[in-house]
């Protein structure tokens, strides 16, 4: 009887069969907190959208005398996504940095460890519940992103790309939060470690991209070898694809200028071209792969028995 029922389970049942995921989701959605955060998030993103709208329309009017719908639409869309990125970067670690250290603080960690719950289920349950809430935030902001459609200049694939990129960002930050949480007994410490790491990645890769851009500009003037040009391009691409903001900017730029979603053409100084994958694809693969490595590492940390 039990086995036949199990076979008929939906994917949702399977996820909810993870006791930690079920507990966390219940806890998160209980009481006013989840709704307060969601409302606050929408007010911030919505308010920001209005400011951008007012600023861009008046700016467009003053220069050309009429509103350039495409520009306003794209700017509005990019601003909303950037704002979401900013908020996701702050909210996700806040959810996961307490994942394990919080269990220590509530003195429930030892109880969990003496049950038969596998370490991976603990990590997965914590990560899933945090990401589920981030997905809720991202979905809730889609109507705000869609205001851009009224002005044109933005296409549906851009919405998908931004959603995937934001989710991959949240996944990495989420796993990073749980990892630091498993290393530290204090949530505050885990939070700080996660934010510092996230900021270092964001600022470090952005600076690397800027530096490499100026190097390649200089290199183009000095006609370097094709191999060197390839090397520079790949290095530049790697840093672009390690930063969600540059990934989004360049993917959007490619989408607008080349109408290409998955690939783009790169022209070398000698006039030859190469077809390369769009940054958001590499970004997603990289972020999910790093997340997987951190996930496994976290389960190792948790498996360790105190000496």
């Amino acid at each position: 009887m039990a086995t036949t029922r199990r076979r008929l389970r939906s994917p949702l049942d399977l996820i909810l069969s993870n006791p930690v995921a079920l507990k966390e989701l219940r806890g998160r959605m209980r009481g006013p907190r989840a709704f307060v955060v969601l409302t606050g998030y929408l007010i911030v993103v919505g308010g920001f959208t209005i400011i951008i709208y007012l600023a861009t329309t008046s700016a467009s009017l003053s220069t050309t005398g009429e509103v350039d719908g495409g520009t306003v639409g794209r700017l509005l869309f990019s601003s909303v996504v950037a704002m979401e990125l900013f908020l996701v970067t702050f909210i996700t670690p806040a959810f996961t940095a307490s994942a394990i250290s919080g269990e220590h603080e509530h003195q429930t960690y030892d109880l969990l460890r003496t049950t038969l719950l596998p370490e991976r289920s603990l990590v997965w349950g914590k990560l899933f519940s945090a990401l589920a809430y981030v997905v809720l935030l991202l979905l809730a902001a889609i109507p705000l992103q869609s205001i851009a459609f009224l002005f044109g200049g933005v296409d549906v694939p851009e919405v998908y790309i931004s959603f995937i990129t934001l989710l991959a960002t949240a996944t990495l930050l989420g796993t990073l939060g749980i990892y630091f949480s498993s290393l530290s007994r204090r949530t505050l410490r885990a939070n700080i470690m996660t934010y510092v790491t996230a900021m270092s990645i964001a600022i470090g890769t952005a600076m690397a991209v800027i530096m490499l851009l100026s190097i390649s500009a200089a290199a183009e003037r000095n006609a370097i070898s094709k191999a060197a040009e390839w090397g520079l391009l790949l290095l530049q691409g790697l840093f672009v694809c390690l930063n969600p903001l540059t990934t989004l900017l360049i993917s959007q730029d490619l989408l607008i200028n080349q109408q290409q979603i998955f690939t783009f053409e790169h022209e070398f100084t000698d006039g030859t071209t190469a077809t390369l994958p769009s940054p958001w694809i590499i970004f997603t693969i990289l972020y999910l792969a790093i997340s997987a490595v951190i996930f496994v590492r976290t389960t190792w940390v948790l498996k360790r028995i105190d000496d």
Binding site: P19, K23, D110, T115
Partner: peptide, 20 residues
Amino acid sequence: FGVYEDMKVWEYLDFFAACY
């Protein structure tokens, strides 16, 4: 004690039963 505060009594037992 080691109890989760944001849980109902039956949920607490259900959670640990699931962990077992």
